[in-house]
Simulated assay, not measured.
Amino acid sequence: MYSKLLLALVLTVSAFASSATTTISGTKDYGGATVGTSCDGASESQAPVFVLTDGSTIKNVVIKAGGGADGIHCLGSCTIQSVKWADVCEDAATMKGGSGKTMNVVGGSAYKASDKVFQHNGIGSTIKISGFAADTIGKLYRSCGNCSSNGGPRKVVISSTKLANVSASVVGINTNFGDTATITGLQIKGYKSGSPKVCVAYKGVQSGSESPLIGEQWNTANCIVKTTNVTSY
């Protein structure tokens, strides 16, 4: 009896934790399971929990608190559907795919991202976020301000998304690289004009220096969002 109980415990722990990155090709449905690796604070040298190859989909998984590491890396076009981050470690997901590639985030949620939820590195690519929710975050999205061989454009499209307790801004983009942010149907808990800032422009630079802040923009060629697209709840 004891050995059977021990075996069951080992199998249960194995289902919820892994020490290595999992690479996904095709479609993987986790059926609501909780997984994770580790978390070394804001270290950018952490390995991701998942790597999504071009054309792949991950769905219905919870990434556990203390196990989010560098989240999900999307290497080309990918879909992240109904994925929940119990506590974001470094970033929830990073778009690394290049020109013409799209990372689709459909549904899901994230909690406690001290910096940003979604990091956008791939030049010429797009991140689409729809039906997502996040609470206690710095930013929802940031186009890389100081990547090596940095440039653009990068595009983000956000729709039907609900946020709470945003400490910095909803998105940050590099207007000098031609980045764009298109935002509709955004709800922010207790939102008042300027608190939090919605679409913030930066000047993108190369690795080794910090990206200078320009400021919040509305209804411009880069920040494609009107005040009517953002409501309080």
Rank of each mutant, 00 (worst) to 15 (best):
A20V: 07
A20W: 03
T21N: 02
T21C: 07
T23Q: 04
T23W: 02
S25P: 00
S25R: 11
G26Q: 02
D29N: 15
D29S: 01
D29C: 01
G31D: 12
G32Q: 04
G32D: 01
T34Q: 01
T34L: 03
V35M: 09
V35G: 10
G36V: 10
G36R: 10
G36P: 03
T37S: 15
C39G: 04
C39A: 07
D40V: 11
S45D: 14
Q46N: 06
A47V: 07
A47W: 09
P48S: 02
P48L: 02
L52K: 09
T53Y: 09
T53G: 02
D54H: 03
D54F: 10
G55F: 05
S56W: 09
T57D: 04
I58H: 03
N60Q: 02
V62E: 01
K64F: 05
K64M: 14
A65F: 08
A65P: 10
G66F: 13
G68C: 13
G68P: 06
A69I: 01
D70P: 08
G71Q: 09
I72M: 02
H73S: 15
C74T: 14
L75G: 05
L75C: 07
G76Q: 12
G76I: 11
C78Y: 03
I80E: 01
I80R: 06
V83I: 00
W85Y: 15
W85M: 07
V88A: 00
C89A: 09
A92Q: 10
A93W: 07
T94M: 05
T94C: 01
T94F: 03
M95D: 07
M95F: 00
